[in-house]
């Protein structure tokens, strides 16, 4: 396995295994906050973020676990945050929808749909003013383009030629509501076009393709300082919010579910490795074992970690 493939494998498995562990342990009622898992959507975060330097910034939404981990966010701080503990990345104040780790450029995640988009554009503006050769990536779901603020932000980014990559992670659903009930067409790049922003729509479950395509795009953004809109189609495996599968509620077409389960990002990647004769079962096992140990340690740590002191309730309401 070459260096890149090893990185991608590590990243993909880390995301999948962490989310599976959260799902498994959620019923113990120690993680007492909403969780929006990214199982099934890993290739989006991994494919894009593996092209980023630490100085490149990422902004995200309620469904931020994958972006946080793919950008290199600290696992222990994430799990502690979800447990509401003191060592969490926000000291337990935010919960799972507010993940951030500024030491690796994972700047901010926000739970209100589209709320983070203009903030990312502001970050891109700061890059432009500072003549920085870095890029801002903002991840958001397919529902975010329905908010007015998406269009206000896209217009501004286009008008000012800002170095920002808009990644629309299209899993077809806003909670239980299918894209066709909310949009006249599944091609969301048309919205970028109307703001004169270059765009591509592609399958987001093929990590190699996502990686290669976003590499080109990110290079281009860095060189030209122009925004880009990338629509990555993908699918979530479990319920919108929570640890379980909810397909018994029948809001998703059975064939559709089947089709996407057969287009699994991890399986796709392993197939790719096999085809290229890069597949090394032992190495994959080593990678997975290493991750499993990290995960176990992080959960143990979070469980035993302290809650923040009650006296800290009103700390940091204002900066000094």
């Amino acid at each position: 396995m070459n260096f890149l493939n090893k990185n991608l494998a590590e990243s993909l498995f880390r995301l999948r295994m962490v989310e599976n562990e959260i799902s498994k342990r959620y019923s113990y009622q120690e993680m007492r906050c909403p969780v929006h898992l990214s199982i099934g959507q890993e290739a989006v975060a991994v494919g894009v973020c593996n092209n980023l330097e630490i100085e490149d910034q990422v902004y995200s939404t309620h469904r931020c676990h994958s972006h946080y981990l793919a950008k290199g966010g600290n696992l222990q701080s994430m799990i502690s945050e979800i447990y509401g503990k003191k060592s969490g990345c926000c000291g337990g104040r935010g919960g799972s929808m507010h993940l951030m780790d500024i030491s690796v450029g994972m700047m901010l995640s926000l739970p209100i749909v589209a709320s983070v988009i203009p903030i990312a554009v502001g970050a891109a503006m700061s890059k432009k003013i500072n003549k920085s050769k870095t890029v801002v990536v903002v991840f958001f779901g397919d529902a975010a383009v329905e908010e007015g603020v998406f269009h206000e932000s896209a217009n501004f980014a286009s008008l000012h030629n800002l170095p920002i990559l808009f990644v629309c992670e299209n899993n077809r659903y806003s909670c239980f509501t299918d894209l066709s009930e909310r949009q006249p067409s599944e091609d969301l790049t048309r919205l970028a076009k109307s703001h004169n922003i270059e765009s591509i729509k592609m399958n987001g479950n093929d990590v190699i393709k996502v990686y290669n395509q976003s590499q080109k795009i990110i290079k281009k953004i860095k060189n030209s300082s122009k925004p880009f809109f990338l629509q990555l189609d993908t699918y979530r495996y479990v319920e919108h919010c929570g640890p379980d599968n909810d397909d018994h509620l029948n809001y998703r077409n059975k064939n559709e579910v089947k089709k996407w389960l057969n287009d699994d990002p991890i399986e796709n990647f392993l197939k790719y490795l096999k085809k290229r004769k890069q597949y090394d079962k032992k190495k994959i096992e080593v990678i997975k074992n290493k991750i499993a140990i990290q995960i176990k340690k992080s959960f143990e740590f979070a469980k035993n970690d302290k809650f923040p002191e009650v006296s800290s309730l009103r700390k940091n309401v204002y900066a000094q």
Partner: peptide, 16 residues
Amino acid sequence: LPDSPTPSTRGLAKVY
């Protein structure tokens, strides 16, 4: 409610 945003953690919610 006291004069702070609402914390997610039950460690602080219990005094909030």
